[in-house]
Write a protein that binds this DNA or RNA. Structure first.
Lengths: 132, 132
DNA sequence: TTAGGGCTTCCAGTCACGGGAAGGTCAAGG
DNA sequence: CCTTGACCTTCCCGTGACTGGAAGCCCTAA
């Protein structure tokens, strides 16, 4: 399979697949014309990477997950540890964004949003009524 | 005030302040020795930017907010529109992350996490039992 | 033979800075 | 007067994970 076919099959853009080769995540063979030639295992790997990336794992985590995936003697706890760490990161991010949401919601709620210049949002950003 | 004092006063790193000058968010005066010289209004602006950035507004949004802040004839609805757009973005991101969290939570819950190689997390990433 | 699509590499840009080098400046102490 | 050390300056590279685009080769069909 050429890169275009693999892109269609895996859902990853050809650019991304080339990038993954650059950083050593996949090592497709090369034809005599210089074209990359992908086998089933390559396509499988790329689908794995696409799924892992869509779950928010970093490239380096994906690299580790892939190596664990290919290691028949791996321990599942090693995989679980990575997933738990990522889960914790996602939860921290959610909490952070929920704090932002609350603040933004308050600001928006208190701004009348008409043609007059008086604006509690700008007042807050300028530090008025908060700590200054 | 020199940049170090402003950094201490505003909470922004000196590097960030220089960057903000580079992209035209602040225009401090210069002393004869080439040092930046910040006035009260500059410090005020930087504090405004720091607060806006901490709320997750992009640099370009900050630029717009700052210009609205300095425009005595602004309409508060223009500010509110920016804040609402940002709020919507934050909410979309939260929803996305909550989806991720649910999936990751399930994966982690189903993995026994011991020394054996059998791992539902890797099985999922490889597409087994999901759609392949 | 030509037209088109697909493939290749390489370079630049994204966003909002941070790290670090090389060198000028300033205030205090000896 | 000189040195020391903290501060300031500019400049360039690196971050993460790609994306866009240019220049040019390859392959197939009409």
């Amino acid at each position: 399979m050429n890169i275009g076919d693999v892109a269609a099959a895996s859902g990853l853009p050809a650019k991304t697949i080339r990038y993954y080769e650059d950083i050593g995540l996949v090592r497709p063979a090369r034809g005599q014309n210089g074209y990359r030639h992908f086998r089933e295992t390559d396509v499988h790997k790329l689908a794995f990477l696409g799924r892992a990336r869509s779950l928010g794992f970093s490239i380096e985590e994906c690299r580790t997950l892939l190596s664990l995936y290919e290691d028949r003697s791996r321990a599942s706890k090693d995989v679980k540890a990575i997933a738990e760490e990522h889960l914790a990161r996602v939860e921290r991010k959610i909490a952070e964004l929920q704090g932002l949401r609350a603040t933004l919601h308050d600001l928006v709620a208190h701004c009348h949003g008409d043609d007059r210049p008086d604006c509690p949002i700008l007042d807050d950003l300028a530090g008025e009524g908060r700590d200054a």
